[in-house]
């Protein structure tokens, strides 16, 4: 991955996350932070894959980062957490694999299609599990804060 490619990916992820936020009518105040959380999650995924960690672990780490960062943003901005994590998972959605799955099923190549189906299921599961892990982090943090007070 060259530097230019890296910059293009960061810019693309940021713009796409922000634009998706506009489509589901997120308040203006939350758009910018949401965009950067999307970039953070995507970069963690990308570097894990580049470092040889595999796409499942990459999606898992990306989802954990998005979950934890969204809660911090929600605390900081005093806004609901879903304003930040819904647009941020959009760059992690396995759109390419899902498309290849549909295409191969439509063209009757079921073996290839099942291969992609497996990937879609694995990635969606990894994202869901990543959210679960981030929720654990969030609950521990909340408990620690309550004890301190």
């Amino acid at each position: 991955m060259t530097v230019v490619q890296f910059l293009v990916e960061v810019a693309g992820t940021y713009v796409a996350t922000l634009a998706f936020g506009i489509l589901i009518n997120i308040p203006r105040r939350a758009l910018n932070v949401g965009g950067w959380i999307g970039v953070l999650g995507y970069l963690l995924y990308r570097f894990t894959v580049l470092g040889g960690g595999g796409y499942v672990v990459g999606n898992l780490l990306g989802a954990v980062a998005i979950g934890v960062a969204s809660l911090q943003a929600a605390k900081f901005k005093k806004m609901p957490m879903i304003l930040f994590n819904i647009p941020a998972i959009v760059p992690l959605v396995p759109g390419g694999q899902a498309y290849q799955m549909v295409k191969n099923f439509a063209l009757g190549q079921n073996d290839t299609a099942f291969n992609y189906l497996l990937q879609v299921v694995m990635i969606s599961g990894a994202i869901a599990f990543g959210f679960l892990l981030s929720e654990v982090v969030n609950r521990v943090q909340r408990r620690v804060w309550r004890h301190r007070r």
Binding site: V8, G12, A16, F20
Partner: peptide
Amino acid sequence: LAAALVSGPLEVVF
């Protein structure tokens, strides 16, 4: 515009 800017950049990223 937002719909356009979700589509194009994500195509390049993916």
